[in-house]
């Protein structure tokens, strides 16, 4: 399972980098989204995989052995929320850019006036 998830993280990063390097700006946004998800998966894998174990049990606080660590998931949730905010803003930005310049080509980004 660990190997599978590690490969998944790698694939996600690869897809993200590929998309980031495209000339189309909407693909750039997709790349950013993939990058965010790849990192969330990385956090999840790096935090240690446990399955079938509870995070908390009533009355058993303090006996951490045999429980899964809830913190990586809390971190991922926070990262997702932040990713949502940034993605939403980036989408608006690119949409405005498209409306102003009528193009989605990256070459329009360079200033050669």
């Amino acid at each position: 399972m660990l190997l599978l998830l590690a490969i998944l993280v790698g694939v996600l990063y690869g897809a993200a980098v590929y998309l980031l390097l495209r000339r189309n700006i909407f693909k750039l946004i997709l790349g950013l989204i993939f990058l965010g998800h790849a990192t969330n998966m990385l956090l999840f894998v790096a935090g240690g995989l446990t399955s079938g174990r509870p995070a908390f049990l009533r009355g058993l606080e303090g006996e951490a052995i045999g429980m899964s660590d809830p913190l990586p998931q809390a971190l991922i949730l926070t990262a997702i929320v932040i990713g949502l905010g940034v993605t939403a803003f980036a989408l608006t930005l690119v949409y405005r850019f498209y409306k102003v310049t009528k193009t989605v080509d990256f070459d329009e980004l360079s200033e050669n006036e």
Binding site: G85, A88, L91, T92, Y95
Partner: peptide, 13 residues
């Protein structure tokens, strides 16, 4: 906060 922010962004798009 989340509901407001989501609606703000989506409406503007």
């Amino acid at each position: 906060a989340v509901a407001g922010m989501l609606m703000l962004v989506m409406f503007s798009i």
